[in-house]
Structures are given as structure tokens and as C-alpha cells.
């Protein structure tokens, strides 16, 4: 197995605020990793730092052996599109959708390589087979969809191109338990081929037993390292919820 993503000594934050402190994480091809931790402990920041959306960062982030992080203090988002085009796909917490565009426009917008753009019809079909409820909504503007449908659009958009590494931020946020369970099921059905998936999630019970390993993020530091699911950790996480 090769290392798809290697994060070393990553510190990141916004302005004077440091959120992540010396985080190291390795993602190998074919893995599904769950990052668990409480609100405000840096899960989203970790995913955002990987695509360069934090205010500043230091340390190293290597994707397929290419450095995409490094130390930078310039504003967020300047290189995000280049990083995304290397094959990373972030499905953000707030969805970052375009409220006036239709569902099919959204799915198309995810096809950023010329190849994907040409094949966008077939790819749209593939997404619809993963999320059948979207079929009827294709011509609807996204602003009128429900929370669960929006999440499907957001994830579907991330799957339109051949992204190898899928970073999914809080798939269950704001959704009814039944819907979020179904959503996670759908995520687990996605064929990774030689890619990988990282899911940040508060609710550990959603991911338990379904991902290849769980990593805890506490106060901006990774805990439990790269070990197998930690029974005690999860026990006490249950206790918290």
C-alpha cells in the first residue's frame, strides 16, 4: 500500500489563533479513515488545512509525494483550486453550495478536468445511482432543497471528478439520525479503487466498525495515533453524547 497523503507536524490556524498543533497523519490508498472529536477541536480545520483554506499553516502536507502544504501565512484559498485539481475533493461542513444554481449545474461544476467535463452526462448518471433522490430534483435550484438533499448534492459534486482522496466534513451534521445513517451507508458503498476517504465526524457510533481506522482529535492534537479503534476512547465518547 502506498501513502496517498502524508501530513507531518502540521500546525494551522486563523490569525492569532492556533487550532492544530503538530498533527501528523498518514492516509494509505484504499483506506477509509474516521477522524472523531468534539466540536471545536480542529476536525474541520485539519481538512481545510489540507486543501489550503486556513489562515496560516506550517509543517508538511504531501499528496502522492508532492508537497502541497508547507509554511504559508497568506490569505486562505489562494491555492485551493490547484490543490483540488491534483485530485483532492473536500466536501465541506457548510456545503459551500451555489444557492441559485440547479442541482445538475452543481454536479457539472464538480467536473473540472476536461475529460470529466466531456463525460459529465455519464458521471451524473453514476451519482444519481448513488443518490437516487436527486433524480427528480435535477432542475431545482439548490436553495430550495432540504438539508439531506443538499448534503447529497455536496457529496455528489465532490464525486464528479476522479478525485482520489475524498475529505468529507461532518456528513451527519444537522441531519436526522435515519438520514445520516443512510448517507454514511452510501458513502461506504462508494468504490474507492486506489483512492482513500477521510471522514470527520462527531458521532462516533455512525462510523464504528465501518471504517478501516478511527483517529481521535483532541484540542488540536491527534490522539490514539494510527492505532486500531480504541475501545476505551469510543466508550468515553459515547459517554459524552
Amino acid at each position: 500500500m502506498t501513502d496517498l497523503l502524508r501530513v507531518e507536524n502540521l500546525s494551522a490556524g486563523y490569525g492569532p489563533l492556533g487550532v492544530l498543533h503538530n498533527v501528523s497523519l498518514t492516509v494509505r490508498a484504499g483506506e477509509r479513515i474516521g477522524i472523531v472529536g468534539l466540536n471545536g477541536h480542529g476536525k474541520s480545520t485539519l481538512l481545510k488545512a489540507i486543501v489550503g483554506l486556513t489562515g496560516w499553516q506550517s509543517g508538511s502536507i504531501q499528496y502522492n509525494g508532492v508537497e502541497i502544504g508547507g509554511t504559508r501565512s497568506q490569505g486562505p484559498g489562494r491555492n485551493t483550486h490547484k490543490i483540488v485539481r491534483m485530485g483532492l475533493s473536500l466536501m465541506p461542513q457548510g456545503d459551500a453550495l451555489f444557492h441559485g444554481l440547479t442541482v445538475s449545474d452543481h454536479l457539472d461544476s464538480g467536473a473540472y478536468t476536461p475529460k470529466a467535463w466531456r463525460e459529465r452526462k455519464q458521471r451524473r448518471e453514476r451519482i444519481l445511482s448513488i443518490f437516487p433522490p436527486l433524480e427528480k430534483l435535477l432542475a431545482q435550484p439548490v436553495g430550495k432543497l432540504s438539508g439531506g438533499e443538499r448534503r447529497m448534492v455536496s457529496i455528489g459534486r465532490g464525486l464528479m471528478d476522479d478525485a482520489k482522496l475524498l475529505l468529507i466534513d461532518e456528513p451527519s451534521l444537522g441531519l436526522a439520525p435515519k438520514i445520516s445513517k443512510g448517507l454514511v451507508e452510501a458513502l461506504m458503498q462508494i468504490d474507492l479503487r486506489d483512492g482513500a476517504m477521510v471522514i470527520a465526524e462527531q458521532n462516533i457510533s455512525l462510523l464504528e466498525g465501518k471504517v478501516s481506522r478511527l483517529v481521535g482529535l483532541h484540542a488540536g492534537k491527534l490522539k490514539g495515533g494510527a492505532t486500531a479503534p480504541d475501545a476505551l476512547l469510543s466508550e468515553h465518547m459515547h459517554h459524552r453524547h
Partner: peptide, 8 residues
């Protein structure tokens, strides 16, 4: 706030 596990 309960203590957290450090390692296994």
C-alpha cells in the same frame, strides 16, 4: 469532563 485515554 472525564479523563481521556492516552494510548492502548
Amino acid at each position: 469532563v472525564p479523563p481521556r485515554a492516552v494510548d492502548d
